[in-house]
Amino acid sequence: MTFGPAPAGWPASTERVVLAETDSTLDEAARRFAGLTGPCWILALNQTKARGRRGRAWQHPVGNLAATLVLPDPGPPDRAALRSFTAALALYDALHAVTGRTDPFALKWPNDVLLNGGKLAGILLETLQQKGRPTGLAIGIGVNLAMAPDGGAVEEGALRPVSLAGETAVAVSPEDFLTPLAAAFAGYEAQFAAYGFAPLRQAWLARATRLGCEITARMGNRQETGIFETIDDSGHLILQTAAGRQAIAAAEIYF
């Protein structure tokens, strides 16, 4: 476990914990939450029970980033949910910082980062509770820095998994990547606090994949196909379908 001096560029008033191994950084965040007084990044070099959206297993090959940011006071639920966009923008900026490029990267609604059209990173938000009350937010982030998981493990129709090293030949350790990620997130968080979601929404749309194109949104047993028009002030996907304009709060996106 590492608690030592933060590296150069690390955001002020943000804790940093590096673990050799844990079950899941999201579970670690829940265990540590009561003792935190401010934002804290938890990085694990190995996870034994990593998970993704809807309880799916998340593969964690050695050298990939598995981290969770704990926000003790993220605001009301609708505001807390917008942190998926803050995290996506921070990932985009961190990838730019370590590669010097922006052209191969794009953001996929609601919570993925793409590289050359494949899935490079995912974001998962979980509410943290104290005495039965939702009072905090855990933002889990996984990035395939060194190795892409087995493509045969992804569900039918999902994007192929890719790695940063495999697609760009850029090698960066999880600890080294965490610093520009944390710094970028702190910058967007300050912008969010000062100006609200509007500038983040515009920044996210400027980096979005398939904007203006046909996509399919799957919501359980139901699906809608239409043109990805925009996201609204709540972060909902606005889809122009044959039945009219629809706002979608949560879905799996396919194209």
Rank of each mutant, 00 (worst) to 15 (best):
A153I: 08
L114H: 08
L145D: 04
A121P: 13
L107P: 04
I123W: 04
N111A: 05
G152R: 12
G117M: 05
N116M: 08
V113D: 10
T102F: 00
G100I: 00
I141C: 14
G122S: 02
A146K: 07
A146Y: 01
D150T: 04
V113N: 09
A158C: 15
W109E: 03
I141K: 13
L145T: 02
V154I: 13
A121E: 15
G142I: 14
R133S: 14
V154T: 11
P104Y: 02
G151N: 06
T127G: 15
D103N: 06
G152N: 14
L145I: 03
E155Y: 09
I139A: 10
G132R: 11
V154M: 09
P104V: 01
L137M: 13
Q129N: 09
G118L: 01
K108C: 06
G100S: 00
F105I: 00
R133C: 14
Q130L: 15
G140E: 12
E156K: 09
L107Q: 06
K131P: 00
Q130E: 15
G122R: 02
I141E: 14
A153R: 08
P104H: 05
K119R: 15
A138K: 10
M147F: 07
L115F: 00
R160F: 01
G140Q: 14
L114I: 04
I139T: 12
E126Q: 06
N144P: 05
R133P: 04
F105W: 01
L124H: 13
E156V: 07
P110I: 14
N111F: 03
K108H: 08
G157R: 13
R101I: 06
E126S: 01
I123E: 01
E155C: 08
L159G: 10
L114E: 06
G157A: 11
T127E: 15
N111Q: 04
L114R: 06
A146S: 12
